[in-house]
Simulated scan of single mutants.
Amino acid sequence: MAGKLLDYNLLVETALRGAVREALKRAAEFGLPGNHHFYITFRTDQTGVELPDYLHERYPEEMTIVLQHQYWGLEAHEDWFQATLSFNKVPERLVIPYAAITAFADPSVQFGLQFRVMPNAENRPAMATPAPIGNAEPGQAGDADATTEDSAERKTGDVVALDAFRKKKP
Score class of each variant (00 low, 15 high):
Glu50Met: 05
Thr147Gln: 12
Gln46Ile: 00
Lys4Pro: 01
Met118His: 14
Phe115Cys: 05
Glu61Ser: 10
Lys89Phe: 09
Thr14Ile: 00
Arg58Phe: 11
Tyr71Met: 03
Asn88Pro: 00
Asp53Trp: 05
Leu74Cys: 04
Asn88Asp: 15
Ala15Gly: 00
Ser151Leu: 13
Tyr54Ser: 11
Glu50Pro: 00
Leu162Trp: 11
Thr84Lys: 13
Gln68Asp: 14
Gly134Pro: 02
Arg124Glu: 15
Arg21Ser: 13
Ser151Lys: 11
Thr47Glu: 15
Gly3His: 11
Met1Cys: 02
Tyr98Ser: 03
Thr47Asn: 10
Ala141Gly: 12
Gln46Glu: 14
Phe42Asn: 01
Tyr98Trp: 06
Arg166Tyr: 13
Val66Ser: 09
Pro60His: 06
Glu13Asn: 13
Tyr39His: 07
Arg17Cys: 01
Thr148Leu: 07
Gly112Trp: 03
Leu6Phe: 02
Ala100Val: 03
Pro170Cys: 14
Glu22Gly: 00
Val159Tyr: 14
Val49Ala: 04
Asp53Pro: 07
Glu92Trp: 07
Lys4Ala: 12
His37Asp: 05
Ala126Pro: 03
Ala15Asp: 03
Glu78Tyr: 08
Gly73Trp: 09
Ala131Gly: 07
Asn35Tyr: 04
Asp106Pro: 00
Phe81Gly: 01
Asp7Lys: 06
Pro125Asp: 07
Arg17Asn: 07
Val160Asn: 09
Gln68Gly: 06
Asp45Asn: 10
Val109His: 05
Glu92Gly: 08
Arg93Tyr: 09
Tyr71Pro: 03
Phe30Tyr: 11
Arg93Met: 15
His77Lys: 12
Tyr39Thr: 03
Glu62Phe: 01
His36Val: 01
Leu11Asn: 06
Ala99Tyr: 02
Arg26Lys: 14
Thr64Lys: 06
Ala28Asn: 01
Ala19Asn: 04
Thr44Pro: 02
Pro132Leu: 10
Arg116Ser: 13
Ala100Pro: 01
Lys168Leu: 15
Asp79Lys: 05
Glu13Val: 00
Ala2Trp: 03
